[in-house]
Design a binder for these strands. Structure first.
Lengths: 290, 290
DNA sequence: ATAAGTTGTTTCATTTTCGAAATTTTGTTG
DNA sequence: CAACAAAATTTCGAAAATGAAACAACTTAT
């Protein structure tokens, strides 16, 4: 009889149990992680059909996750939707009490997250993302709070491949003012991994409202957001460490940028070479490679 | 009987089949993706033990992947190992001409870099690094150019664990002026992965000159730098993509921050909880995780 | 060359997983 | 409040997965 842990979020339960799941359970987990809203409006039967498993498996699945029944899980999910996030660190810290974290376990979890993140990307979505990044007249890269480093990093790579990349937020400039220059032919690369602030959603809504295309990189806990994004790419973030990880997201950026350069082709290559030349002329880099 | 597709790389086969794998098969897949070299030097029996499955499962696993036997897979992997090792350092742009990059190859290379990076860390160096980060009165996080996102990211995590973290460079403030407040009891976390500019070295020299301790995260190409750092942690950066990767560096930061929090212990925990509470009070985060 | 030891594969009984159908629960309508 | 309908859960037998042990192929040591 599994304990019914009131305080753990639905998606978290799935991710925590994911490693040990059987095949059918994994299919269900994938469906629910892909579209966390499903549990709210879909019946267990519909869910079963979508995952390609029997109703019996679905019923068992929710008991495995520690809910007494599907109904209970549904009810719990509805409550979670309203109440805000609970203490994230407290429970995890307990695990470590007076230990130092094991590097090999850290490694294993990072690798698993990366494998599952990249493995689950639909190649048509990736293609679409690359096209959007390539075709946008201007390309806005958006990342607030925790996502700012990701955005910054993405911008640093993208600017090597194509011109007209703008970072949001930029310094202390007012976002709204900067934002007035959106056009329908622009593209967005938006990072909403883990922490998302209200302003982030506002920005994306405006972007979509203006007719821009949006590539949205997020985690598996966020709700599906067609009103906010043209393509959504989800990353695994659940980590054994104290903090969640954005390593898979970073790796995805790497891939997208490489793919973009190749998609753009000759002009990207020229640009890369030009940048090298400028660096050489300025002689601004330390060359202490051995 | 599955066909024996000569031309598909070993890791690629695993990824192709990953979705449909049974539990035990997935355990094996995870082990092999984390350490693809295992197939070369490990026996099937050892592999079984590492994955926690029976020898029978391992034998079946390789047949599932389309190899006639384990031996055959091993032989095939050896051939691939030689041929793929050579093209590694060729002109990267040529490699891609008119192709789109393969996600599974990208994944493989990222995983490889991460595994090698984390495995090669000496645990005494890591311990020393954590101590330095914990004991510094102020903690300066340094990262110019490409390293700025890394520094920014590290700061974002560290500030959750301990106070008095300063980022360099910060906005457009003059580094020198900010820097006047170094003291011998301060600590530095410096990122010099890939691109390093002269100012970076100047900062570190001043830091060491002032008697501060410096944790230096860099790549494998930089020269050994005792005059610049107290502890040096090296990361693999060579990637199959168009750009070098800082994924391993990011993962290392993750580990260090977790380790630091646990090392600091109770006060870090209190700090984390306090941050949670403040977020809750301000209600500034979107809670769309259902 | 033969015995002893490994290593990989196969067999077979056991356990786990799974779906169809029966059963129960829940909700709705006359 | 029946009577029905739909949804969720449980039952139960079939199929899949798995590990222990037998077996076969190879190496090594004597």
């Amino acid at each position: 009889m599994p304990t019914f842990d009131q305080d753990r979020l639905f998606s978290q339960r799935i991710l925590d149990a994911y490693n040990e799941m059987s095949r059918g359970e994994r299919y269900l987990a994938d469906v629910l992680l892909e579209n966390p809203l499903a549990i709210l409006d879909q019946t267990a039967t519909q869910l079963s059909e979508r995952a390609g498993v029997s109703k019996a498996t679905t019923a068992r699945f929710f008991r495995l996750l520690g809910y007494p029944s599907y109904k209970a899980a549904q009810a719990q999910a509805r409550v979670e939707g309203i109440s805000s996030g609970q203490s994230q660190y407290g429970s995890r810290m307990q695990t470590f009490k007076s230990h130092k974290p094991d590097l090999s376990i850290h490694l294993q979890s990072e690798v698993q997250n990366m494998v599952r993140t990249l493995e689950q990307q639909r190649s048509d979505h990736l293609d679409q993302a690359v096209q959007i990044l390539a075709r946008g007249e201007k390309l806005w890269v958006v990342g607030f709070a925790d996502n700012y480093p990701l955005a910054h990093f993405a911008r640093a790579q993208l600017i090597r491949v194509r011109p007209d990349i703008r970072l949001i937020p930029l310094g202390s400039f007012s976002v709204a003012e900067e934002f007035a220059s959106i056009s329908a032919s622009d593209a967005f690369l938006a990072f909403g991994v883990l922490k998302r602030i209200p302003q982030f959603r506002n920005v994306l809504r405006s972007a979509i409202g203006a007719g821009s295309k949006v590539v949205y990189v997020t985690d598996q806990m966020s709700r599906t957001a067609e009103d906010i994004a043209t393509v959504t790419l989800r990353c695994r973030t659940r980590s054994t460490g104290l903090f969640d990880t954005v390593v898979p997201a970073l790796s995805l950026i790497n891939y997208l940028c490489s793919a973009l350069a190749i998609y753009i082709g000759e002009s990207a290559m020229e640009r890369l070479n030009m940048i090298d030349e400028i660096h050489a002329e300025w002689d601004d880099l330390l060359s202490d490679h051995i």
